[in-house]
Amino acid sequence: MFAPNHRDLLIACLWASLAVVAVAATDNTILRTVLCVPVAILVCGHTVLRAIGIGAASRAEHLAYAVGASLVVGIAGGMALNAAGLLSPLGWAVWFWLAVVGSSLTAARRGGPAWTLVAAPDVRRWHVGAVVLSVLVATGAYALAVRDETAQRQFKYTEFWLLPSEDGGQLRVGVRSGEEKGERFDLDVILDGQPLATFRSVEVAPGQTWTRELPVAPAAVSRRAVARLFRPDDNRLYRSASALLTGR
């Protein structure tokens, strides 16, 4: 089926098949990335170009056109899979497999010149070493950028909330610290002017969340709950929150 001058098509079909197997059989991100990304972004476009019979004047031209054709195959796949209700990982893998195999068979039937790789220019070891080093430096720099982003916290804050349940039978009160250091709080909850709960010396470390669920007796009318957060050190009202409990 695949003559020697169509080895690229055979390799494309095998690669696409491996991609389907990888999607169906493993959750390994690296393996799936290595197998699936080339199929989705380049290989299917390459086989489509071969099927249509477009000859490019240079490798760069062929690669650019192949990426363009792959993008169109991907877009068409989205529409088709949506119509079929198959927009899922396996659906995508099968779609690209169908595109690659279908266009490869068409290309093989059409004939045409062989597709060969160009010879590499006179590359020495240090050239490769320099490029690899560059990639490593750029990757390291990216990791540094991620670390910088994670460390950037301009505002120091404490989140305080009071959430009523849907049925009005429960209140959820919570504190989360975005401060630089741990803090100690006093907290009280009042329902319709009557104390419902009090918590003393609640310690919350940076990044830590403190929550309590408070059951509330059902009532026929709507009631207002208020929660207040105090800092015992200066006895100051630090935050307050309120919620409306719906009546039954």
């Binding site: 799936r32 877009i75 989205g78 893998a93």
Partner: peptide, 14 residues
Amino acid sequence: ALEILATSLADLTR
């Protein structure tokens, strides 16, 4: 289309 392509890669690769 952009969302289709990006999600296809996300789906395929995890």
